[in-house]
Design a protein around this nucleic acid. Structure first.
Lengths: 160, 160
DNA sequence: CAGTATCCTACGTGATACTG
DNA sequence: CAGTATCACGTAGGATACTG
């Protein structure tokens, strides 16, 4: 009766979820992207219980998403590693989706900018090899060498 | 002592998480992208408990991510709506991250293809307005009209 | 400031049996 | 096949007090 993990699924999505799928985790990472570094800042900003935050941070350090350093003033600091920074497309995709499909009536909450010219970035889209934008139905899948069929043998049909 | 929701955060990411943040939810959606439509297929493929699946599907239908239709043979079917299809960049970003940062030693598990020419799609990247690819540190944020500072007033500092 | 340590409870989830 | 209904349980997570 344990909570099941997703390991049996052999799926990259499930792997990712095992790192960032828990409650709070993604919001902690968001805060790290926003420049927060210190324990109490995370805690106050999110209103998360201290023990939970502690555990999540440990886990993220373990997964090498965050790095814990002594920091300038002797206080510990949590910084995103390269692996953590690589989560940005996920965070931004999710933020864009929330903006569009669960909007705040007053308008966008946070706007991502190209730092160079301060123009808004594009909405995240899937791109073909030659840069064409692809819509959901323009995409198929095939099995790679690491594929192992889990329970059902999904026919890998396309969207219709 | 209720489990806290994220509403107090006024954050699009939190909004998105409130729809797809629960355990199993994203995997159900993944299955829908893979062409699964029927209750028992989801159940068998994921190994999820029936009551949980039932509840999640209801929720997703309620959120208009899935649509429940009578289906051809009289059996109910669950289809992705436009709102659901719009989740694809999230799913793909997450799959790519898992491929890269928690790889299967045997190679990629699933490969997304441009249906037109069956070439692999690009890895998801953030793009500037003029199509340049942006790295995490090339991006800043500003507050939009819908912004309301939550607990802490984050200085919105950039990555360093 | 940055945690650690307890305690407690609600809820998520698994297992399973039953209905139309 | 597509659910609904129960029950039992583990644990995630809240609250809070305490330490270095």
């Amino acid at each position: 009766m344990k909570r099941r993990d997703f390991d049996h699924l052999n799926c990259s999505l499930a792997q990712t979820l095992s790192v960032i799928g828990e409650h709070w985790t993604l919001l902690i990472i968001r805060d790290a992207f926003m420049g927060l570094r210190r324990f109490d800042d995370f805690q106050k900003d999110l209103g998360i219980a201290r023990n939970v935050l502690s555990e999540r941070l440990k886990r993220l350090v373990n997964e090498e998403v965050l790095e814990k350093t002594p920091g300038e003033k002797g206080f510990p600091e949590y910084h995103l590693t390269a692996k953590g920074l690589a989560l940005q497309p996920i965070l931004i995709s999710m933020t864009h989706w929330g903006d569009k499909h669960r909007p705040n009536p007053k308008g966008r909450r946070l706007i991502f900018l190209d730092r160079k010219n301060r123009k808004p970035i594009q909405t995240m889209t899937v791109r073909a090899h030659d840069d064409r934008r692809l819509k959901p139905k323009d995409i198929t899948v095939k099995r790679g060498p690491g594929h192992r069929s889990s329970g059902l043998d999904i026919p890998l049909s396309d969207l219709r």
